[in-house]
């Protein structure tokens, strides 16, 4: 990365105004593999920003760098007003993280786990209020391993909310969930954004990105190859003359499934 001049430095500082995340020239390499190849993007405050791409595109590495869990080789990243590389611990206290397939301690109840997380942020919290917020008030004294897939993800999001984070990272939050649970999680994500938080979401489900995200960045081989609103990206493709072989019907099989089984959540 070239040296940043003072003017550029000031410019970057200025540009973080109104942005929850500013990433500039981010690069990460594992041996010969360039996982993240000099990407730059900005996420606005209160935006739901989707990070899309095939497996191995560099999404998770990017997100983990922004979360302060990994060190980048080059570039800059400012998250919630904090320079991630200079103060990773400080960033951690301002963000919430839901990791892909993250587990929690066994032998503890949901309330005890929430209280433990709150203590790690050195914040007081009413665990039951938070559990009610994610619809798990009935499970307050249960253990994580007794939860359904959707409940686990909602609990995971609850632990990510204990510190009232400005930015919430959700890494494939709906993978493996049934259609009802997915929709339930979408509603939760939208409600969290309504509270004034910014959400960065990685997903393999394009319908999810289309429903939730204000803007998406498509990554491949460590680079961002497209970034815009879902509507604009679709519009651009159509403008190139793309037509589906089969014209979309008014409903699809998922609509049939939900019509048959209802929107109601199916879990204990």
């Amino acid at each position: 990365m070239s040296a940043i001049t003072q003017a550029e430095e000031a410019n970057l500082q200025l540009d973080t105004q109104g942005f929850a995340i500013v990433v500039d020239g981010l690069r990460k390499r594992y041996g010969n593999l360039v996982a993240v190849d000099g990407i730059s993007f900005r996420v606005k405050e209160r935006e739901i920003f989707g990070l899309l791409g095939p497996n191995g595109a560099g999404k998770t590495t990017t997100v983990e760098i922004l979360e302060g869990l990994r060190q980048a080789d080059a570039g800059r990243a400012v998250v919630a007003g904090i320079d991630v590389f200079k103060a990773p611990q400080k960033v951690k206290s301002r963000i919430g993280v839901q990791l892909q397939a993250s587990a929690f301690f066994d032998y503890l109840t949901l309330v005890e786990l929430i209280e433990m997380f709150a203590a790690l942020y050195e914040r007081p919290i009413d665990a039951r209020v938070l559990l009610t917020r994610v619809g798990l008030e009935d499970k307050a004294s249960s253990r994580v391993k007794t939860l359904s897939g959707g409940q686990k993800q909602r609990f995971s999001i609850a632990t990510a909310l204990v510190n009232e984070p400005r930015v919430l990272f959700l890494d494939e939050p709906t993978t493996g969930l049934d259609p009802q649970a997915r929709r339930n999680l979408w509603e939760l994500a939208q409600a969290i954004r309504q509270d004034g938080r910014t959400i960065v979401l990685t997903t393999h489900y394009m319908d999810e990105a289309e429903t939730l995200c204000d803007r998406v960045a498509v990554m491949d081989r460590g680079k961002i190859i497209a970034m815009d609103t879902p509507a604009t990206l679709v519009g651009n493709l159509l403008a190139k003359g793309f037509r589906r072989r089969q014209v979309e019907r008014e409903a699809n099989l998922e609509d049939v499934f939900l019509d048959l089984t209802g929107h109601e959540l199916r879990e204990g």
Binding site: E67, L69, K92, V97, L99, S102, A103, N163
Partner: peptide
Amino acid sequence: QQGILRRLMATPM
């Protein structure tokens, strides 16, 4: 293995 440490490392612990 279960990613518990990773989750904790994402807090200011």
